[in-house]
Computed example of a mutant assay.
Amino acid sequence: MINILTQLIRNKITRLFLLTIAILFLGAVGLHYFEKTPHIVDAFWWSFVTITTVGYGDIAPSTVGGRIVGVIVMVFGIGLLGMFTATIASAFVETRLKEGKGVMDVKVNDHFIICGWSYKAKEIIAELRADKKIKNKPIVIVADIPEKPLDDENTFFINGEVDADIMTKANLRGASVVMILTDESLDSYSRDAKVVLNTLTIRKLNQDVYICVEISDARNMQHGKLAGADEIIVIGELSGNLLAQAALDHGITKIITELVSNRYGNELYKVKPPESFMDMKFIDILKILKEDYNAIILAIDSGKNNKLVANPPMDYTIKTGDELVLIAQERPQLGK
């Protein structure tokens, strides 16, 4: 809305508005003077319906002076009102075009930023939208492509490569998560080098944002970590592991596919345990979650030790800072 107002001011909308009001006022005063209308309000009513070309005909000038006033109002008033409405319409259209071209700053906060565009980016957005918790969360795409690639009112687009100016336009300081995708137009080495460089840039600009990246070669994971990535997905390694599991245990990848998709079946969630779970044993919480929430604990993310414990021992006790990794049909609201 601020951008539209700026555009309107630049297009002299204020001047057009004042001129239109002036014609409306002069028409009303002129009709009242020549036609001796009982109330000035009626004169203003006539002037308004004449300018807007409605023309109900309930009031019509009969004197020469009144008709001259009517001609002036019709000629100048209608023209000015048309210019006024056309200027407003053009400002909205121009703003929409600029948004589509990715040249306007975004004004959202607590949003996700996706750096790069490919078929994977579209799938990522679809998965994010399938999660009820962040269904309407703003998403900003930063990519060197001609125009906005997705028609979604809560998805915004910034055209360009990752640098300080572009990330300022994407409001990096207000973002909660940044996802950096590999550039599939480059070779494997160059892809990872670009991801690491983008990670360094983003981490320097925002020390607190959570950064998830994908790389092509597992040997570059260390570079990604040193650059400041919080989570790294190795493309080839992940698909290789899934293929190996498919060969060893036929059909097991179907359940893995279900768990990592938000669009159907059960999903994986990481949630904070309520205070009532503190110091309780894992086996007791496992029973409560299954009975009350139809959920199963897979692992404990120990914030204190920065360690993920899969299939914890039965006597493991929940401590402050721990988070539960669950399988459930939808994100459970624990303790509610």
Rank of each mutant, 00 (worst) to 15 (best):
E330S: 03
R67A: 03
I300C: 00
L326T: 00
S90Q: 14
L26W: 04
F34C: 05
A244N: 09
K107W: 09
K107C: 05
N198F: 12
G66W: 01
S185K: 13
E323I: 02
A43K: 00
Y269W: 12
I9E: 11
Y33N: 06
F84K: 00
K133A: 13
L326W: 01
N311H: 10
N206H: 15
D284E: 03
I166E: 00
K204P: 09
I235D: 06
L5G: 04
N109Q: 15
N241M: 08
T87I: 05
T50P: 01
L308K: 15
A130H: 04
K225Q: 11
D315F: 04
A229S: 07
I113Q: 04
D249I: 15
L18W: 11
I9W: 12
N305F: 14
I158E: 00
L268W: 10
E147W: 08
D315N: 10
W45F: 10
L81Q: 09
L298Q: 02
L200Y: 10
G102S: 02
R219S: 08
D301P: 01
N220V: 06
I141N: 02
P149W: 05
D187W: 05
I125S: 06
M278W: 13
N154H: 12
H32P: 04
K148T: 04
K272S: 14
N154P: 01
I285D: 00
D292F: 07
E275N: 12
K254W: 09
G228F: 08
E94S: 15
E267G: 14
V234L: 05
V54T: 13
R173E: 11
F76Q: 00
Q222V: 13
G77H: 00
K122P: 00
R331K: 06
G66K: 01
A60S: 10
P149Q: 05
K12P: 02
A299P: 01
E267I: 03
A126R: 13
E237R: 09
I296E: 07
Y210F: 15
F34L: 07
L186S: 05
S276A: 14
I211C: 06
T50R: 04
A246P: 06
L298Y: 01
E323G: 05
I72G: 01
L172K: 02
E291Y: 07
T87L: 04
Q222S: 13
R191L: 09
N262S: 11
V49G: 01
D217A: 07
V103N: 02
A295D: 02
V71S: 03
A121Y: 00
D163V: 04
F84I: 03
D42E: 10
P312S: 05
